[in-house]
Nucleic acid binder design. Structure first.
Lengths: 223, 223
DNA sequence: ACCTGAACACCGTTCAAGT
DNA sequence: ACCTGAACACCGTTCAAGT
């Protein structure tokens, strides 16, 4: 793509847009108008330009989102890590989660491609390293990392979408309501006992506790 | 919505479309043309009708997808369940996964709302029941169910999107390739050792093994 | 080299009217 | 009661041309 900072042998038209300008405009839209508002067209408007001009600086929308995520990960403070490898593993997985929880718009990109942010790779490295130090083979470490990653993606995806649904229309889908009513009336005694608490309980913030269970389950399985 | 099977006191125009016809046409499109091809407009065309006619029979696209999922769950064989509650829990979670793995188009709906299929509720009921029989409180059982659900959703979401990406363009996003190259060259020794195997290892089919680890981790945590 | 305008090929959904 | 046609308010991306 581009790399020029106005080179001496000035060839061609001078650029008006830059990757940095595009990224910061995109971040501004995300912050001020929310996840749903970032489109290539809206972004072009923000920059007083045209949609197509953007394609000179980024390959496509996915790459744009990935770069935004990368920038966010880079800004994130890198804390001291605790030492027994199990604790380091949990700490790293939690950091990964905490980085991503700040980017609701990331769902699209998490879901469309494997996570590949250069600025967050140290976390993945540390997780795999901790797993190996816990006695797992390289293959098992890669698999265990993946299980933690699945949990994290599932938690984030459902969290963001729950928030989004609550934001825009609180009057829940009628289909869901009907199913829930059937559950309460029918022969599902366990769910009926939980009753209306069911929804609240299952959306309570137990992310960290679940993470610890997943990690310890993996370590026990591979001990 | 509709409920009529040509009532004697025939009032108004007789229906040409029905919920069943809509659902089976939608399923046909999904089977023959793939997940990406199902739109309200395409579906209307399949039925030689107009997009708006559909809205007389289903509330919106999400409800349509939910009903499709429900129909799929209903067709699914309901096997004998093993008996120590831990094994029953694993079996049920696996069935839930197996039902969903047959519906790649389900990602949209999993992600947009909590799972609420009347035909699959017996599985959730069984999972919560097994967790309580394992000694968890009702609240802890609801939370543990949720953790398993997050793992399942993450696994499915990433699985489907990996497949979709492989299907349409094998020449992977250049951004991702660049990051991977940096990883190999830079100071991530653990990931570098795994090297090109990294991607394959992390996408290998270890779904069941991960599920067992998650379940046992949860049971150990709540023992 | 960088940017523009117009177009392509779509979406889900609503509104007002027709039968 | 059920369906249609036209429109609203969008998408991401490509192509051919302009400066």
């Amino acid at each position: 793509m581009q790399s020029s900072n106005r080179r001496p042998g000035k060839i061609g038209r001078p650029p008006r847009l830059s990757r940095e300008a595009i990224l910061s405009a995109a971040q501004r839209i995300l912050d001020e108008e929310g996840t749903g508002s970032l489109s290539m067209r809206r972004l072009a408007k923000e920059l007083s330009s045209t949609p197509m001009a953007l394609y000179h600086h980024v390959r496509d929308k996915d790459e744009l989102l990935m770069m935004l995520l990368d920038a966010h990960a880079e800004r994130f403070p890198r804390p001291e890590l605790p030492e027994p490898p199990r604790d380091r593993l949990i700490a790293c997985a939690q950091i990964l989660h905490d980085i991503l929880v700040g980017c609701p718009w990331v769902v699209e990109v998490l879901v469309s491609d494997s996570f590949a942010s250069a600025s967050a790779m140290w976390i993945v490295e540390n997780m795999v390293d901790a797993l190996i130090e816990c006695g797992l083979t390289e293959e098992d470490a890669a698999y265990a990392y993946r299980v933690i990653w699945y949990y994290t993606v599932g938690e984030l995806t459902l969290r963001f979408n729950r928030e989004r649904a609550r934001d825009q229309n609180q009057e829940a889908a009628p289909y869901r309501t009907r199913v829930m009513a059937a559950v309460a009336a029918d022969d599902f005694p366990r769910l009926a006992v939980l009753g209306p608490r069911w929804v609240e309980l299952t959306s309570a913030d137990n992310q960290r506790r679940g993470l610890v269970a997943v990690v310890d389950g993996l370590l026990a399985q591979n001990a």
